[in-house]
Simulated scan of single mutants.
Amino acid sequence: MARFYDYGLGVEQDAAEAVRWYEKAAAAGSAAAMCDLGVCYERGEGVEQSWEKAAELYRKAADRENAAGQCNLGFLYEIGRGVEQSWTEAVKWYGAAARQGMPRAQCNLGWCYEHGKGVEKNEKRAVHWYAEAAEQGDARGLFCMGVCAKRGIGVERDPAQAVAWYEKAVEAGSVPAMCNLGVCYENGEGVAEDLTRAAELYRMAAEREDAAGQCNLGYLYESGRGVEQNWGEAARWYKAAADQGYSRAQCNLGVCCEFGRGVAKDTAKAAWLYRKAAEQGDPVGACNLGYLYETGVGVAQSWADAVKWYTQAVEAGSARAQYNLAWCYEHGKGVPQDPVRARELYAAAAEQDYEGAREAADRLAGAGGKKGGFLRGLLGGGRKDR
């Protein structure tokens, strides 16, 4: 009865009534009801939300070998809600559920092995558990196997095999796999390049609220690859991803706002978007924001702030930021003049083949050097998978 009310099966959905029946079943010793009642407490459905009560119920179910209860208890230990955070306990309970064949727990345990959380890092063990889930047709397990094959995690790197896994994951409904498979088709990795197919896959992911898919689709509209070039559509999809806090899209939308591409020109909004991206560690956003502070576009001119953001981008390896910060050191803008540091930064940018950097390094700290022009943020904001 509880699940009929919980899911509205043949009766009007009623969370409070579902809780009443779950409580009766739990009192009668049903481990499944204990777990489901724990979910109600975790989500605050039909009862006042309580992480502690959820943990208590999950533990009761877990102690009775209920796989879902074990996995849910593991997750609470992972995030530290209702219990003290403990990766060791998370792994313990994920393992208990995984050994019972639960795909979600198998994937969670695989992730712990992949990243060394609660256990010694072991990529081969990670692949073992991802494969266990994948063999059951689990969408996430199939996706994780694709990622491992693409990046050479626990297995030999094999782009073609990655595509095969992603294809299966897409068939199983994995949204991130739609995006990653799109990247393979766009770049011709493991499959013949097919920009039209890439656009189709990005759109599938984008329409399911996948931020990376939305941003990648926006980039195809910007560049006119696989779709007809359309700045309006590019800005629309960048905004959809930016609204989800996706830093690359925030940066790309910032470029649209700065130059009036597909949206009204708004340099203050561009600066705000670059800042949002930069605060998440995006080097392109940080460098773009630094340039706005240098030129006083969209923000009050400030060499100190320009140097601050260039420095952040340099720490992330941005060649353009290395060049721009080098110029600041060479000319004493926002920092004390330091020809030695300037040469170091020019040389670092030259190592990445940044235009004009080798010449600047070769002339050392000589006066009269021209500063490189502004390179749009989009040039650093191409396609990425997860």
Rank of each mutant, 00 (worst) to 15 (best):
G260C: 14
L220P: 02
R376S: 15
A277T: 03
L9E: 08
G82P: 04
A286Q: 10
G382H: 13
Y130P: 01
Y274V: 04
A105V: 09
G80K: 05
C328G: 07
T295A: 12
V119H: 03
G380T: 07
G213Y: 08
D338F: 06
A206F: 07
R341G: 00
Q106N: 11
K371H: 12
A28M: 09
V170H: 11
G10P: 07
A105Q: 06
A192R: 14
E233I: 02
A96I: 00
C328I: 03
F75P: 01
L73S: 04
A139C: 10
Q85E: 13
N66R: 00
Q280Y: 08
G226V: 09
V163D: 07
S174Y: 10
F143Q: 07
V91D: 06
D36T: 01
A105C: 12
W93N: 02
Q229L: 10
W272P: 00
G146E: 05
E42F: 13
I79D: 07
K60F: 01
R225Q: 15
K168P: 13
G226N: 06
A97S: 08
G224Q: 11
G368P: 04
D353H: 13
L181W: 13
A357K: 07
Q337K: 15
L273D: 00
L217D: 03
L375V: 15
A278F: 10
E315Y: 10
Q49M: 09
W272F: 14
C287P: 01
V47Y: 05
E45P: 00
Y113G: 10
K333E: 05
Q70T: 01
P103I: 13
W51G: 01
Y238L: 04
A347R: 07
K92W: 03
N66H: 14
A90W: 05
R383K: 13
G245W: 09
A365S: 15
W129E: 04
M145H: 02
C107V: 15
V170Q: 06
V39Q: 02
R320N: 03
Y238K: 05
G152H: 11
